[in-house]
Design a protein around this nucleic acid. Structure first.
Length: 666
DNA sequence: GGGAACTCAGATTG
DNA sequence: CCAATCTGAGTTCC
């Protein structure tokens, strides 16, 4: 980086009215706040990775001093026990709540020791005597008709199980033999255990699935009843009529594999099924008016609503296919066309019903911006000024405020001198890259014997602490166990919200479990925390606050590979670490609070400069559609909690609009 | 060495 | 009961 020796490395806009900057507090500020630092800090030396962000005026103020205080160095993490009261569970689904008694304890034994439990199991084709669907909280009524809560629950269970299967498969720990398709296996397991919803087929929307929701597997849409087929593009409903059976199309998946024309945003030309023209050697034959095609034909007369799911292949990563639920359409026209191979195909023109929230159109807009079309409201192309390897744009589409109060963009943590958290550990001796399942890898052993990430860098499970490889590891820097150290994965946007200051969102869809960013800033002496708060520093991340509990990991009872009595999830992680992002910080300082967030934090430890430091890493809690605001739970201060949330002053009214909103936070 | 083409197993529904 | 459907990840090819 340039090091910030120049007065200002961010282009200035001469016309900006400085009085407007007074407070665009991005984060926690919902009360009036007058910034004392509308002027930038002095020119000076910045460590590598710094990129001063001075939208207005020359640097002046000295960065806050970080005072080392050896006496208050926190206890080593292994010794730290959880404080009382960490369990104000607000978990919703019965059975998945409160398993923290065993979850708190660190499991010492690697999972391989418990893998043998499945050997004595009967053949997997047999129905288990216990209905896990009931055990984990899906009632028969919920199986038939979904709700947002149930849909989220089922999707969470699906992906957690899929990730775990990928992890076990990668480590060759499965006694079932290789699983080539973890998605299908996870789907099959959930289906047989009754963890699914919207089984009752219906015309129109599937309760709990919202327009704009994204899916990374066809199987995900099966388990929530959005579209019943893994492969089939047309899902149909059969209605027993008085005289004959009527069949109507209820949903289609437009995957672009046929030459479906997806140019017009609200119109789809969909090709019927059959005709063999995927297979190269076989020449195309005419499609028949049966099955899905028959249903589409009936629907084109009946004019019933049809759910449309658009499959989108990612430009950047062609292996990644994302499905977007784009709402209800009706067939406007149908005809017989010619396929490239020569056969007749059925063609259907579907038109989106008006008045629905935008979904696919958002993707189209993002695509345009990425290909260079000017973005309305764009203030700055990259507020990190090169500190991140992916640009972070600054956008305001709602008012005239030009920038947040100034801060120094820094991508990671600054520690006070001699602020040692853990003894440096000897790195692993793996060559090239650490391999899942390698019991000789000391880093894997530290992660309870599991490789914490699956191939594409997705976190498998929440843990008390994720141990990543560091400089003393002999593996290559591109080792898969360095996910949180490699910076942003998606282009981000700091944007002005209507009523919550600045916020953060991604231009790309984000898969559940994907690393988003760490909470960067200055590590603060615990003794100074209350002082910071008194001073009005609202950019404080404190790991010891009380955070709402939630279930994210796989459900052990669904897997034959693990001991069913074992809890898979470690809840509260009261490792004492306080970070101030007021003067130095990254995109994380712009993430707002929500009582039903889409992002969670996870402590990650790795070594730098011969010390092991704990970092706060943020991961996607669910799949997040593009342009959706990223939020996490700010938690409740311990002192506030003791006195009862309502009574404490200084808390802010929550504007997250979630149905589970606690009303205030801070 | 990187993208395109090919391979292949695979579950639900009707 | 099994055909129809085309995915998703891995492998090979050029």
């Amino acid at each position: 980086m340039e090091g910030g020796t120049r007065q200002n490395s961010v282009p200035l806009h001469g016309s900006i009215d400085k009085s407007r900057i007074l407070d665009v507090k991005p984060l926690k500020s919902l009360i009036p706040f007058f910034s004392m630092s509308s002027q930038a800090p002095p020119p000076g030396q910045y460590p590598t990775g710094f990129s001063p962000f001075f939208p207005f005026g020359a640097p002046r103020q000295t960065p806050t001093e970080v005072t080392p205080n050896a006496a208050s160095i926190p206890t080593p993490i292994r010794v730290y026990s959880s404080p009382p009261g960490a369990g104000d569970s607000s978990s919703t689904m019965e059975g998945f709540s409160d398993q923290r008694t065993s979850g708190k304890k660190k499991r010492r034994s690697p999972k391989s020791s418990s893998a043998k439990s499945s050997l004595a199991k009967p053949k997997k084709t047999q129905e288990p005597p216990v209905d896990l669907g009931v055990l984990v909280g899906i009632t028969p009524a919920q199986k038939e008709d979904g709700s947002r809560e149930v849909v989220n629950f089922v999707l969470m269970a699906f992906d957690a199980l899929r990730r775990r299967l990928c992890q076990l498969e990668g480590a060759k720990k499965l006694s079932l033999g290789p699983i080539k398709r973890a998605d299908l296996k996870a789907c099959n397991t959930l289906m047989t255990k009754g963890i699914r919803t919207n089984m009752r087929k219906r015309i129109g929307s599937a309760p709990g699935v919202e327009i704009g929701d994204i899916f990374f597997f066809r199987a995900e849409m099966c388990v929530v009843g959005l579209h019943a087929h893994f492969m089939g593009g047309i899902d149909a409903l059969h209605i027993r009529g008085e005289f004959e059976e009527e069949t109507l199309a209820v949903s289609i998946v437009s995957s672009g594999e046929y030459d479906d024309d997806a140019e017009d945003i609200d119109v789809i030309t969909y090709t019927g099924q059959g005709g063999n023209f995927f297979k190269k050697d076989k020449h195309a034959i005419d499609q028949k008016l049966k099955r899905g095609n028959l249903a589409m034909d009936r629907s084109s007369r009946q004019l019933n609503e049809i759910r449309v799911i658009r499959g989108i292949r990612d430009d950047v990563n062609p292996n990644l296919k994302v499905y977007v639920y784009d709402g209800l359409y009706k067939i406007q026209d149908s005809w017989i066309g010619k396929a490239k191979g020569g056969g007749d195909v059925f063609k259907y023109k579907l038109v989106r019903m008006p008045g629905q929230p935008s979904a696919y159109s958002v993707w189209k807009s993002v695509q345009k911006w990425k290909s260079g079309t000017s973005r309305i409201g764009l203030i700055l192309a990259d507020i990190s000024n090169g500190a991140e390897n992916i640009p972070v744009s600054l956008v305001n589409e709602v008012d005239n405020v030009k920038a947040p109060t100034y801060f120094n963009y820094f991508h990671s943590l600054r520690h006070p001198k001699s602020f040692s958290l853990m003894q440096p550990s000897n790195g692993c001796t793996c060559t090239k890259s650490c391999v899942p399942g390698d019991s000789n890898c000391s880093c894997i052993r530290r992660n309870e014997g599991d490789f914490p990430y699956i191939g594409n860098g997705v976190l498998v499970s929440r843990m008390q602490l994720v141990h990543e490889c560091g400089p003393t590891c002999q593996c290559f820097p591109n080792c898969k166990n360095r996910v949180s150290q490699t910076g942003l994965k998606h282009p981000m946007e700091v944007f002005k919200t209507k009523d919550r200051g600045w916020g953060l969102r991604s231009l790309d869809p984000i898969r559940s479990g994907t690393f988003i960013c760490e909470y960067a800033g200055e590590v603060v002496d615990r003794a100074k925390v209350s002082q910071l708060v008194r001073e009005g520093n609202e950019y404080v991340f404190d790991t010891t606050r009380i955070y709402g509990q939630f279930k994210w990991n796989y459900e052990p009872r669904l897997l034959e590979e693990v001991n069913p009595n074992e809890s898979s999830e470690h809840y509260a992680m009261p490792y004492p670490l306080t970070i101030s992002a007021k003067n130095f910080g990254n995109v994380a300082r712009f993430m707002n609070h929500s009582c039903s967030p889409n992002v969670f934090w996870q402590p990650v430890v790795y070594e730098e400069n011969n010390q092991s430091y704990v970092h706060v890493a943020f991961f996607a809690l669910r799949h997040i559609p593009p342009m959706t605001e990223l939020t996490y739970d700010y938690g409740v201060a311990r002192s506030d909690h003791a006195e009862g949330i309502r009574a404490v002053k200084g808390r802010k009214k929550c504007l997250c609009r979630s149905s589970k909103c606690r009303g205030s936070y801070g």
